[in-house]
């Protein structure tokens, strides 16, 4: 049974993105922050007929500190770990009032999504709640001051994985949250990156026009937490994809498509741009390179296994 009805897609491009800002200037994100790039674009695509939800995260604070707010659309925050179910509650309430056409979107960071927020996220996905969930992945708890999350990559310095004399950064690997979400068999799961805007816009628009549970995880660097120059946010995001540190793919009704074939450039360039990897030993860099190769290999097999021609 189809779990959603695909809507008509009118392809939006950078040139045709609406000029109106539903997420206004004057917000207080750090200079060069990646998440406002995601949010600005997403709000332009979703439009004013949208209700937004935010957990306790950087975006909650920089997007609005009472009595001021950057969002021109309805805005709700309840708590940290319940974004998906709050968005679902909003959607059901709108439907009960005959407002079925309103988009409901939750924006959340990687910790609020894949760690503390995962139970509510998984539950909402399993129930195929009719919401769009956008995770901006900056690979740590940035709001509380750069602590490691399940999404923090191997070797990265954070304030809870310091570059000590005995242990240098995080000893564990990044949680593969997109695939976990794909395993929920929801209508749409995709990864995106601020470094690949056309792909990101297309995916947000596609997700907007679908029904049922839609999950986007968008790579959004944090210059403050990654200890890098504020001008390099987009450049480093491109390098993440090119080196295989982040894969751009999507699953629509069980069919997986690889959107950008990784060039598998050496990870060194990517790592060297960021202060959070400054302490890495050659051995650690080798481990990360190995992880990237292995991830790429597994991703390609995964895409092959769930490709269109394998669909019965």
């Amino acid at each position: 049974m189809d779990r959603h009805q695909g809507g008509e897609t009118i392809a939006i491009t950078i040139k045709t993105l609406p000029k109106e800002e539903l997420f206004t200037s004057g917000h207080t994100a750090c200079g060069g922050c990646g998440s406002p790039i995601v949010v600005r674009a997403a709000m332009k695509i979703l439009g004013e007929n949208t209700v937004t939800y935010f957990p306790a995260c950087c975006l909650l604070v920089f997007g609005g500190t009472y009595p001021h707010n950057a969002f021109k659309v309805p805005y709700l925050h309840v708590l940290f770990e319940n974004s998906a179910v709050c968005a679902a509650g909003i959607k059901h309430a709108l439907n009960k009032q005959g407002k079925e056409d309103v988009n409901v979107v939750a924006f959340a960071g990687d910790g609020g999504t894949g760690d503390i927020g995962f139970q509510a996220l998984s539950g909402a996905a399993e129930r195929n709640e009719d919401i769009l969930y956008i995770c901006y992945d900056n690979e740590a708890y940035m709001n509380t001051g750069i602590q490691r999350s399940g999404s923090t990559p191997f070797g990265a310095w954070t304030t809870t994985t310091p570059a000590g004399t005995k242990i240098g950064g995080k000893e564990l690997f990044k949680k593969d949250l997109p695939k976990i979400m794909m395993a929920h068999n929801v209508p749409y799961v995709a990864t995106a990156s601020v470094g690949h805007p056309a792909d990101m816009i297309r995916k947000i628009e596609k997700a907007k026009n679908m029904k049922g549970f839609r999950y986007l995880q968008i790579f959004a660097p944090c210059p403050t937490g990654w200890r890098m120059d504020t001008s390099k946010t987009v450049e480093v995001a491109k390098k993440a994809v090119n080196s295989g540190m982040w894969t751009l793919f999507e699953m629509e009704d069980g069919v997986v498509t690889l959107n950008v074939k990784p060039k598998m450039e050496p990870v060194d360039d990517y790592l060297k741009m960021q202060g959070r990897f400054r302490h890495l030993t050659d051995e650690q860099i080798k481990i990360i390179q190995g992880w990237a190769y292995k991830k790429n290999e597994m991703d390609l097999k995964f895409v092959e296994a769930f490709s269109e021609d394998k669909k019965e």
């Binding site: 206004t24 200037s25 004057g26 917000h27 207080t28 009472y66 009595p67 001021h68 707010n69 950057a70």
Partner: peptide, 21 residues
Amino acid sequence: TRPMETPEGLVGPGSFVDNKT
């Protein structure tokens, strides 16, 4: 809070435009 014009400026949705960063 709905958008409101107060003697101290805009508050509510969209009011961050008054915050010159």
